[in-house]
């Protein structure tokens, strides 16, 4: 690990003043410290923000919705009974991520800032335009397909966050403080597609710091029919191959409003408003969900040897919609949203 200056400010103003180019904010450290070890990140200054006051609260807002401090730990948010009942897929997504230990350390703000898990990004010996603009993309050259949506020839990385997928679906708002004061960034604008500038991953300006996250009042309307589904190649402690957050507001047997976002398919959580529009006003059934999923993946193209992933993402979206239509389980948070999350019962010979 490269040597760095370590400071531990005790006020937000002090922290913001301490920022300089090459500095990094340190929250739970689960991603930053790891990348400092591989050498993918080499901050000259590490600013430990965990001592900043007032950033670790979860508050219900008078106008509805909830405000979650940037330093709330993932496990505390996931296990908050109020969050689980009002925004069940947020809990479900958080608990599908990482491990109990990592969730105890990782913060809400850090989860939003999580870097891609592309092996070539993590490895400083590899060419990576995201880490080192203009260096090239070894992942693309190797044919190791990753994203299937929104990627460019410059970068094919995906965003690994589970948490961000329901946040995108629920129109979360990111509250930011920086040298120029406070501002808010809608989730849909927070993460950036690579285009020609993959090094620009978020809408944050240099020196800006996430202080909180808001889930708007409307997000509560989906509590009865909201699921996060994560497909992975071992049952737990693995990043998603594909994932989907599906939320339906069902009135009189019809979908009054739908939200759908996909994970692990693009450099950003992938909200699919086209599919949502297609679902709105309809009676939920298998054919409808298939059409919606088709629309969700309409623009998908493989970035390497991963055409199968488009198919898997489509199937994941369908299943997530089916699960949402079937209703949020009584016990939340449910077991991680694997199709095998519930105990398998007796055999039925077909």
């Amino acid at each position: 690990m490269k040597r760095f200056e370590f400071i531990q400010p005790t006020s937000l103003d002090e922290a913001l003043a301490a920022w300089e180019p090459g500095a990094a904010w340190l929250g739970g450290g689960t991603n930053l410290v790891d990348l400092m070890k591989t050498g993918a990140m080499q901050p000259v200054k590490v600013i430990d923000i965990t001592r900043l006051p007032g950033l670790a609260e979860i508050e219900t807002l008078a106008e509805g919705g909830v405000r979650i401090g940037a330093l709330v730990r993932n496990s505390d948010l996931a296990n908050d009974a109020d969050i689980a009942s009002r925004f069940p897929m947020v809990s479900e997504a958080l608990l599908a991520g990482a491990s109990g230990q990592l969730r105890n350390a990782a913060t809400v703000g850090g989860n939003l800032m999580q870097r891609t898990r592309c092996a070539y990004f993590q490895d400083p010996q590899a060419a990576c335009n995201r880490r080192d603009p203009g260096a090239g993309c070894d992942a693309r050259e190797a044919g190791a397909g990753q994203a299937v949506l929104g990627w460019s020839e410059i970068c094919i990385a995906t965003n690994p966050s589970d948490f961000c997928v329901p946040l995108a679906a629920l129109d979360a708002i990111v509250e930011v403080r920086g040298p120029d004061g406070a501002r808010e960034i809608p989730m849909a604008e927070f993460h950036l597609l690579p285009g020609d500038t993959p090094e620009r991953e978020t809408a944050l300006s240099p020196g800006e710091l996430i202080v909180a996250l808001r889930l708007p009042p409307e997000a509560e309307g989906f509590a009865a029919n909201a699921r996060y589904l994560k497909v992975r190649d071992r049952t737990s402690y693995a990043f998603a191959m594909t994932s989907a957050a599906a939320a339906l507001r069902i009135e009189n047997g019809r979908i009054a409003e739908a939200r759908l976002a996909l994970g692990a398919v693009a450099a950003t959580p992938w909200r699919v408003t086209e599919a949502e529009a297609l679902l709105a006003g309809q009676t939920p059934d298998a054919a409808l969900f298939a059409r919606a999923a088709e629309a969700a993946l309409a623009g998908a193209t493989p970035s390497g040897d991963n055409a199968w992933k488009i198919d898997l993402a489509r199937r994941t979206a369908i299943r997530a919609l089916e699960m949402a239509a079937a209703g949020t389980p009584a016990q939340m948070p449910a077991l991680p949203a694997s199709p095998f999350g519930s105990t398998a019962g007796d055999l039925a010979h077909a």
Binding site: A344, G345, A348, A350
Partner: peptide, 8 residues
């Protein structure tokens, strides 16, 4: 030939 109650 075999499926469980979840359709697996």
């Amino acid at each position: 030939q075999m499926r469980d109650e979840h359709g697996h």
